[in-house]
Each structure stands twice: as structure tokens, then as C-alpha cells.
Design a protein around this nucleic acid. Structure first.
Lengths: 155, 155
DNA sequence: ACCTTTTCGACAACCACGTTGACCATTTTA
DNA sequence: TAAAATGGTCAACGTGGTTGTCGAAAAGGT
């Protein structure tokens, strides 16, 4: 009878799958006029959303401190993907809003993700892919995703 | 008929699976006397292996510069998991070797990974898990894994 | 043998991403 | 109205990366 795979392979495969999709996404985004977008930026812009948010709230959504979230917002602003504007209703707050260029990345990302999923479906079959998604949902619901990846990995 | 999952869910699920396993591993390692081990350390120690290696070679295995690999080795040394010794056969080289404490982490990690895989097998069934592994292997062979995760994500 | 090229390790400067702690300004609340 | 909670920023630091430079040692070619 066949041996079980060694346990260490499973996380490697999961990570390789994630990284494969992320790399293809960013290669395609680079081709479509967004060469300087990094995975961290995509997560942050997704968390900012169409309505914008504040640094404190962004930090809560991303699972990092408000200072870290503020720095990320500054970088996105420097790259032209976000802007920080005063909140007329609350002089403490500064809203982080996506620029048209930021919305463009979000829209293109959604499209590319759908294409990549379709590629998986074609290769594996829609049934197998659905089962894979369902199994992952069973084992690791991506509830309130924490995206402090860089810090999580190394610090 | 059921709708397809949105494309952006797939990478999130893959990452959540990876992170779930990694978090459980490190929680267990902490319980077993290794509270300061980080994911990056585990990858580096795995790459150092039982025979030890040099900073340059470690950099190649990890897909990072020799300087970065050297820094990682220094940190592992500071934590007591590795030691750097002169190579008697080549005065340029300094071998990075795991300490007994380093080997201990590797052995415990392997055991915990097997336990975690067994937990997945119990929940999903061995067949489903094998299929999941096979499908991931199809879509993203973890060939020559690059583990510059922190830099890849953000820099 | 000798000179050139390659390799290894280290130093320095820098960037990205995260952390705490402290601080001030502005709501909110009691 | 005074006290507490909230939002943003500054500063200092840790960790994981990057280039570029450099000297010492090994390898290679003539």
C-alpha cells in the first residue's frame, strides 16, 4: 500500500499554491501597468475598500497596529494608489481613500483571480477544485484574515 | 446550479491553510521548549540540514543573497540553534552547523507536521487529503522552494 | 610557477514591514 | 465641564531583505 506523504509536504504545497497564484497575479498586473504593486499592497487596498477607512480601522482589519497601517497608507499614497484626506466630520480622523489608480488595481485583480481560478478548474476539473476549496474551508476558515505576513514570518 | 467561488477566495484559502499549520506547529514547539522559533528559522534550519553548509550556499538554497543568509545564521547562532565554525579545508569558508538544540527543533517539527497531517486526514479522510495534495502538486510543484517570504511579500 | 578570475565572508548603507511607548488634538461620556 | 476614549504622529528599535565594496583565499589558465 502507498505510504502517506510526509507531513512537512502539506504546508509546502499550500504555500506553493498560494505563492504561485500571487506571483501570476502580480506578473499580470505588472503587464497591465502596475509593476510596483506588491502582495502586501493588494491586501491593504482590499482592506481599504471602496468606502475608504482610517489608519486605526485599517490596522484593525489587517491585524496590525495603527502605526503600521499608517505607514502602509503612506507608501500606497507615495505610489499613487491612495490618498489621505481630512474628515470634515471629525478633525481627528484622516480618511484613506483609493485613487482611481487604486480602484483600477482592485478591478484588475478581481478579474485575474477569476481567470486563475478558471485555469485551475480546467486543469483539475470544477468538481475537484470545489472539493479542494471546501476541504480548505473545513480545515482553515479564512476568518478575519490577519495579513501581518512579513512580521508574522520573521519577527 | 451553484455559483463558482469568487477567484480571490482560492489564494486566501491556501494561505489560511498554510498559516494554520504553521501557527499550530509553532504553538506546539513553544510548548515543547522552543518559544522563540519563527517560521523563517524553521526554513533556514531545514536548509542548513544535518551536514551544515556555508552562508553562500544557504543563500542559494533559500533564494536570498549570501548577506541575508549570513544574517539569518547569526540570529540562529544568537538563539543557540546554530554555530559557525571555521572550515579547516578552506580558510575562506565558515561552516554553519546546527547545534543539538537545532537538531531537536528539526526532529520535533517533523513529528508535529506528521501529527497535523494526520489531523487533516482524520477530518477529511485519507483519500480526500491525498487528492488535495495531488491537486496542489499538479498546480504548484514546490520545486526549489524560495523562502524569501518576508521580502517577497513586502519588499 | 605565476597571474587572473572566482568565491567566501564581512562591512556599510539602505528599504519595507512590523513593534512599543509617548504625546497632542479632538471627540465622547459620564 | 472634567475625564476618558479615540485618532494620528513621532521616535526608537528589531528583523528580513537588498546593493555595493572590499580583502583574503582558492582555483584556473598559460
Amino acid at each position: 500500500m502507498a505510504e502517506d506523504a510526509p507531513g512537512f509536504e502539506l504546508p509546502l504545497l499550500l504555500f506553493a499554491g498560494f505563492r504561485s497564484i500571487a506571483d501570476q497575479l502580480h506578473a499580470e498586473l505588472a503587464r497591465q501597468g502596475h509593476p510596483d504593486i506588491r502582495p502586501a499592497h493588494g491586501f491593504a487596498m482590499q482592506a481599504i475598500g471602496r468606502d475608504g477607512t482610517t489608519a486605526s480601522e485599517l490596522g484593525r482589519r489587517l491585524g496590525v497596529s495603527k502605526q503600521a497601517a499608517g505607514k502602509t497608507a503612506d507608501r500606497l499614497a507615495a505610489l499613487g494608489y491612495a490618498a489621505r484626506v481630512d474628515d470634515p466630520a471629525d478633525a481627528r480622523r484622516k480618511l484613506i481613500r483609493l485613487t482611481p489608480r487604486g480602484y483600477d488595481v482592485l478591478a484588475r485583480s478581481a478579474a485575474v483571480f477569476d481567470e486563475l481560478r478558471a485555469a485551475w478548474a480546467e486543469r483539475l476539473g470544477e468538481d475537484r477544485l470545489r472539493q479542494l476549496e471546501a476541504d480548505l474551508k473545513t480545515m482553515a476558515p479564512p476568518s478575519g484574515f490577519r495579513l501581518d505576513v512579513a512580521g508574522w514570518f520573521g519577527a
